[in-house]
Amino acid sequence: MIDLFAGCGGMTGGFVAAGFSTALAVELNPYAAATYAANFGEDHVRQVDIATVSAAEVPRADVVVGGPPCQGFSSLGSRNIGDPRNQLWREYVRVVRAANPKIFVIENVDRFLRSPEFALLRAEVDGGSLAGYELTYGHLNAADYGVAQRRRRTIIIGSRIGPVALPEPTHGRGEQDALPVGLLPWAGTRTRIAELPERPDTTELPRITTTFFGRPVPGVFSGLDLHLGRRPTELSLRRYDCVPPGGGRFDLPTELLPRCWREKPSGTTDVMGRMRWDAPSLTIRTEFFKPEKGQYLHPQWEADEPMRRVNRPITHYEASLLQDFPADFRWCGTKAEIARQIGNAVPLGLSRALGNQVAAALR
């Protein structure tokens, strides 16, 4: 396989678990590329702008995977169709043409299917440079594949060996006895983070560096190295203490509301939210350590026992586990850079389902 815009390796991790090996990975960010190399080897990784990788440098491969940057399509951004990052799918297509894979897979935000770029991609398949491939596409939710996180993404599979269906869900929302035969209930956050210390010992990463691609980077870190606390203000702690599992900013008394929330009585329902033990988290974004950005408060909270409340956002380690990374996954970079890698990654349960589906089609 070839992994483009590889990030820290979320897509590669799932495909490797499905039996693939990587011939080439391309990632521009030096910290994400270092994390990728720490887990999957440095020899096949190019830490460069994808536009600088010539066709002659692209190996043949059975599969090309990747998630071209999607900020221009994101509902969190300005949704500027002229954003130059939206055009990076063209570089993806160029590498697909050079590698001539039997199958390619694109992962992107859910609104990608409504973008002008997706229309152009279909035109390339209908008679352009990707003629001969058949597309299958749709929206998949990571929770439907055993990930303890509700994360809805666009998945596009192109194949020149016959259509490849999107993988069938293995999990569903609801109690076991109410689900169709063969489906398991969605995994709750309890299955990933319940055994971790409720109060982290430190707010800082260990002071170690490792050299990748000829330059030193912070790391390599793993496990409890990433179980990092913060130092919230007294006001923040008072706000956290008011929010029950599944709740959010609407649970705060008026005197604790910042002006911006007092003046906006609707919308942004998940901010200052608390997770629930028995349900998947909402989407883990790149600033999961800021409760004002989403539903990122630790799920432990008991109405009748204030001393049994964990009033903090989730840690980097907890976020990585909710993204389905293994406990021993290795990370490089600063706290902010590692958070960005975690939030931008494809959850491994979802990529593993895709890898298994593609492997079955190739067989």
Rank of each mutant, 00 (worst) to 15 (best):
F5V: 04
C8A: 15
T12P: 01
A18N: 11
G19E: 06
G19T: 06
F20P: 05
A23T: 14
P30M: 07
A33W: 00
G41I: 08
R46T: 05
T52V: 12
V58L: 00
V58N: 00
V63F: 00
G66P: 05
C70R: 06
G72T: 10
G77D: 08
V93L: 10
R94L: 06
I106D: 03
E107M: 01
N108F: 02
N108P: 02
V109R: 03
V109W: 00
D110Y: 05
F112I: 08
R114V: 06
E117G: 02
L120A: 15
D126A: 15
Y133N: 05
E134R: 15
G138I: 08
I157M: 05
G162W: 07
V164K: 07
L166S: 07
P169L: 03
G174R: 11
E175W: 07
E175C: 10
D177G: 01
W186I: 08
R192T: 09
R199C: 09
D201M: 10
T203Y: 06
L205G: 03
F212Q: 04
G214N: 11
L224V: 14
L224Q: 13
D225H: 04
L226M: 13
H227C: 06
H227D: 11
P232D: 10
D241C: 05
P245L: 00
D251P: 03
D251S: 15
T254S: 14
L256N: 12
R259L: 10
P265F: 05
P265D: 10
S266C: 04
S266M: 08
S266K: 15
G273C: 10
M275P: 05
E292W: 10
G294K: 05
Y296A: 05
P299G: 09
P306A: 05
M307T: 14
N311Q: 11
R312I: 03
H316A: 15
S320G: 13
S320F: 03
S320M: 15
D324G: 13
F325S: 09
A327I: 15
A327C: 06
F329G: 06
R330F: 01
I342Y: 03
L348F: 06
A353H: 03
V358W: 01
A361R: 12
